[in-house]
């Protein structure tokens, strides 16, 4: 009896209550949306939210993995741009080739990020800030600084395709989040990423190769950036070498609102999904209210500060 009580008390610890808070926040923004505009709950609007925000939704799942490993990846926005340029350039030759080349490119960038990080031991934000510039420059060189036309109509239609009224990309998002959730929860590699982020010294002592885990986390981030780029290309219908700027900030925001911490070892990808939806809905509400789109970055910045700030306060 006593034991049961104690178990319940422990189980309903901090992580449990922060899940509740997250759900409440989610419910609150939904409610605000409904109150602001009757259009909010329309099928069309819901579709718009998903279709418009899916790119950074995909990025957010990869960012969660990186944050759990205790690092950060600022280069994902540039990777999305590179993918769109590669797609637009190569798709006229062969769509399969374009897709394979894009994913290969971003995974390679991810691996390089990881290897450089483990070899040089520099702070990850410095490294990925540098690769952000390098990757962007590659995209600009390939596209010669101009938008690249050449994405087949059939491919660019995918972003607007719906199945049973639900946009195709919603299924993609669900699949990606399921995959990441499963990977993080059930595979040894996934658990090792948590261990390394939580206490790298303890992880090392259990025989985990920390460097290899870090590289793997960046490879996954690269993979997600590639997939996000594939969708982005379809959504914008062309290759944009200067597109997807600051997408990394939104991805980070979603992951942080979802409870991932900069100190590593923490984060649940299903919560990131909620975080992503919260950000997307807040942006949508601002749109519905007729607020200038330029307010959105301000809102994103404030959301980051509030999310991290609230968490720090709760801890102390």
């Amino acid at each position: 009896m006593l034991q049961n009580q104690i178990q319940i008390k422990h189980k309903a610890g901090r992580s449990f209550s922060s899940n509740i808070v997250l759900l409440l926040v989610f419910a609150a923004v939904m409610l605000i949306g409904a109150l602001i505009s009757p259009l909010f709950f329309s099928v069309q609007n819901m579709r718009n939210i998903i279709v418009g925000a899916a790119t950074f939704g995909i990025l957010a799942s990869g960012m969660t993995v990186i944050l759990i490993a205790g690092e950060i990846d600022l280069s994902v926005g540039s990777q999305v741009a590179l993918t769109s340029v590669l797609m637009a350039t190569l798709a006229p030759i062969s769509l399969t080739l374009a897709i394979v080349a894009s994913i290969l490119a971003t995974v390679t960038i991810g691996i390089l990020n990881g290897v450089l990080l483990t070899k040089t031991k520099m702070p990850s934000f410095v490294l990925t800030l540098s690769t952000m510039g390098i990757v962007r420059s590659i995209a600009l060189v390939i596209g010669n600084g101009q938008p690249v036309y050449g994405v087949p109509r059939s491919y660019s239609n995918l972003a607007n395709t719906t199945v049973g009224g639900i946009p195709l990309v919603a299924f993609l998002l669900v699949a990606i989040y399921l995959f990441t959730w499963f990977f993080l929860k059930y595979t040894t590699l996934g658990r090792s990423i948590y261990s390394v982020g939580s206490n790298s010294e303890a992880a090392r002592l259990t025989g985990i190769n920390i460097d290899r885990i870090t590289v793997a986390a960046y490879a996954i981030s690269g993979l997600m950036a590639g997939i996000a780029g594939l969708y982005y290309t379809s959504y914008v219908t062309l290759g944009l070498p200067d597109g997807a700027v600051d997408y990394e900030t939104e991805a980070i925001t979603a992951a942080i609102i979802g409870g991932a911490s900069f100190f590593g070892g923490e984060g649940v990808v299903t919560n990131t999904l909620l975080g992503f939806l919260i950000v997307a809905i807040v942006k949508n509400i601002l749109n519905l209210m007729g607020v200038s789109p330029f307010v959105q970055p301000v809102a994103i910045g404030l959301l980051i500060i509030i999310a991290v700030g609230v968490r720090t306060m709760r801890k102390s």
Binding site: T188, R191, S195, S198, L205, T206, E266
Partner: peptide, 17 residues
Amino acid sequence: DLLPTLSVAENIFMEDV
């Protein structure tokens, strides 16, 4: 040498999941 952000069970079976 425990992992602070992970569960008790995971820590116990850290080496032999």
